[in-house]
Nucleic acid binder design. Sequence first.
DNA 1: TCTGCTTGGTAGAGGCGCCTACATGTGTGA
DNA 2: TCACACATGTAGGCGCCTCTACCAAGCAGA
Lengths: 248, 248
Amino acid sequence: MCDATTEEAQPLTGSLEDYLETIYELVRDQKVARVRDIARARGVRSASVTPAMRRLADLGLIRYVQREYIDLTDEGAAQARRVYARHQALTHLFTDVLKMPAALAQTDACAMEHSLSGEGLDYMVRFLEFLRVCPESQHFLETFHRCSLVHHNGESCALRCTVKEAHQGDIDREQLTIASLKPGQQGRVAQVLGASSARRELLNMGFLPGVLVELERVLPEKSAIYLRVQGFEIMLRLEQAKLVQVSR
Amino acid sequence: MCDATTEEAQPLTGSLEDYLETIYELVRDQKVARVRDIARARGVRSASVTPAMRRLADLGLIRYVQREYIDLTDEGAAQARRVYARHQALTHLFTDVLKMPAALAQTDACAMEHSLSGEGLDYMVRFLEFLRVCPESQHFLETFHRCSLVHHNGESCALRCTVKEAHQGDIDREQLTIASLKPGQQGRVAQVLGASSARRELLNMGFLPGVLVELERVLPEKSAIYLRVQGFEIMLRLEQAKLVQVSR
DNA sequence: TCTGCTTGGTAGAGGCGCCTACATGTGTGA
DNA sequence: TCACACATGTAGGCGCCTCTACCAAGCAGA
């Protein structure tokens, strides 16, 4: 399933892509790129930069004369723009659509930009273009952001989006959660409530929207609940089970 | 900007995460995980698997007795689920929202799952939850997919989404493109038309929604156009410039 | 039982990418 | 002019991750 072979021939390692991108940004912002600045920007020692520059020069992507300023060749600039475009598209998605904090969007985009394929970029940008071009997408995005905020604040969303915060047993009774399943019953995860740490723990366990869960058994004292999720048995504490809303 | 230091302490390398995930899937699907299967699934030689197993065993993530079946410890299963959750969330986004072909969604998700932070996952899932829970999101998504299809097919979208395919000079005159800018004028990229190769080339150059471009000069024969994009001068052929729709 | 195939493990090499420690240039101010 | 600071480069080391080539265990059939 997760084959290591990459579809697109990718001659550049992630590290070299990072160096190239850093040089691109430095040339753009400071006009010149020096070893010291590259090291600082990338968070590595200067000694690590030199061999990287040699490799980039060997690949014909930069003009590199020892102790001189470093400059991109046309091919290098093209490659840098390719990486940078992925960075931008991801950042755009993360900040403007998902409303991540800027710093988080940056770090995640920086990490993921190396592994997004050209075809994947195409599809992602198609979505971003739609959001920009199609008028009704504005309303949709606003609704999402409002509901998302509401979700954070613990209030009820007036837009039939059934978003509620879990105040320790203050969960809407109408809403089905894992805790309200009977043994043998199945449900499909709709959303996970709770403060970010509790929520994140549940997400890491695989309680994502659309995932099918089956309640196996409840411990006598009702302190713990055993589920079958994707072929595996998973145990939840009751408080956790109450946070996972499901539909049947 | 692109600092190498990661926010979350990440003791596992991407490679080890992949091994862990592979074992997880094998145990789930085939009940047992053998070296041979792991190697096949990951696309590496068996000889590469052994040292990886030793490292995972040292980390307490798998039970590994030489020449016996390999099994996950509780901690290993938890870690595997953590990686797998990222994989699933990304796959979900790619297939159900962005409508990527399944194979592409898999490979891109496989590559990106290692670099998505826990916080990033949280935001992404918030969006996926909204799509599942909020009724109006269904209509929105359908509109996007319809427009996206139309975009592919080269027809006009009836929903005021101004999506058109470029039939070599058959571009809607009302729609501003880079080719219709005057020297000194600026525009903001709305969307890029064209067949996937031409479009992808432009995306790689950085013509993404929202990017500010300024037309600098047009070559006398009008065969080429020079732009200023993010501090850099970029040259486009006229056919290319006609594919980039802008708003002012 | 012997032969030989499959499976798994060992040894050693090589590339990458980082590090520390040290060497070399280059320019500036005393 | 000398000395010092600072930027840059070199040498060597280490961990990761893969490879090839070879070795060992175990099972299957003649």
